[in-house]
Amino acid sequence: MIKYAANLTLLFTEWSFEDRFSAARDAGFEAVEFSFPRDMTATEIAENLRRTGLQQVLATVPLRLGSKGLAAQSGKAGDFREDFHLGLEYAVEGGSPLLHVLSGVVEQKNYSVSSGLFVDNMRWAIEEATRHDVKVVIEAINQTSVPGYFIRTLAGAVSWTQRLEGLGLILDLYHAAMERLDPLACLDLLLPQSDHLQIAGYPGRHEPNIGNLNLARVLDLVNSHSYTGWVGCEYQPADGTLKGMRWLDHFR
């Protein structure tokens, strides 16, 4: 049976962040993922998880204002380590097995230098996270949404996970589609080596049944691979979170 996790950064925004946990549980979710919650401590997050009986399946290292991450940024190693330790605290307190690290925007002319910085920072981060039984994961972000993002392609993300031992992969079908890749082909090829799967409709990033994503075939493939991880519902509701949940009620 496919396991769905609600992305509390994009879903249930009609509620305060603290109340989104209860709203997700009441909607039938057993797990959540979210970007860094700036207005709640790690202890408060953990308490909300215990109170609602939810699992946190993906945490994210916090982003500084105007940044898309620091892992590949020159002169930012100290800031990266400070932010990573904070993100790791949230992962450990919340019981999340995965911690997403973002690498930032990099100009093409600086890419080789940034690659060396990325290797150094990620090797350190992987070692730190492993001590707490947390796995560091990355994803590609399409160049339309975030021009210049360091991990420019899905193939690039896969290459980094092969190069850096212990680094895991988030397979995001929306970003794959925005890269003009076939989401079904990507899913069939890469799901066995992915640590987390995220879905959204394409091209609007609304509910996964809105647009060109063949949701029924996606879920068939997930089942055929006997995927045991979670499917993160990382989309922007087209017309209210609960109203848009009809797709999930149908397929669940």
Rank of each mutant, 00 (worst) to 15 (best):
Y174Q: 03
R246H: 08
F251Q: 01
V57S: 12
V61H: 04
S67D: 07
R38L: 13
V146Q: 10
G66Q: 09
K76F: 10
G95N: 08
M1T: 10
N223R: 09
N7W: 04
A200M: 08
S194R: 02
R50Q: 15
A157D: 02
A27V: 01
D182Q: 04
L189D: 02
E30L: 14
A5Y: 07
G28N: 01
N212K: 04
A31N: 06
R123T: 12
L219Q: 01
V57Y: 02
H250D: 09
D83S: 14
W247K: 05
Y202Q: 00
A71K: 06
G201Y: 06
V61E: 03
L164Q: 04
W247S: 08
W160F: 11
D188C: 01
S96F: 07
A23V: 07
P97L: 07
D182E: 11
E165I: 08
E93M: 14
L102Y: 03
A72V: 05
Q73A: 12
E139S: 00
E82A: 11
M178E: 12
L65A: 14
A129T: 00
L164P: 01
R20S: 13
I2F: 03
L221T: 02
S96V: 10
G229F: 00
F12D: 10
E44K: 15
S115H: 12
I45E: 15
E128L: 06
A125T: 04
E89F: 08
H196L: 07
T228L: 10
H100L: 10
E18Y: 13
N209K: 04
L191N: 00
G244T: 03
Y235E: 05
L102D: 01
A238N: 14
W160T: 00
L117Y: 12
F29E: 11
S226A: 08
G94W: 10
G75R: 13
R152E: 13
D249T: 13
V136M: 05
L65E: 14
N142Q: 08
L63D: 02
G148Q: 10
R163C: 10
A23C: 06
G69K: 06
L154I: 08
Y90F: 15
F150E: 11
R217M: 00
A77G: 09
A216N: 11
V146W: 07
E44S: 12
L221K: 07
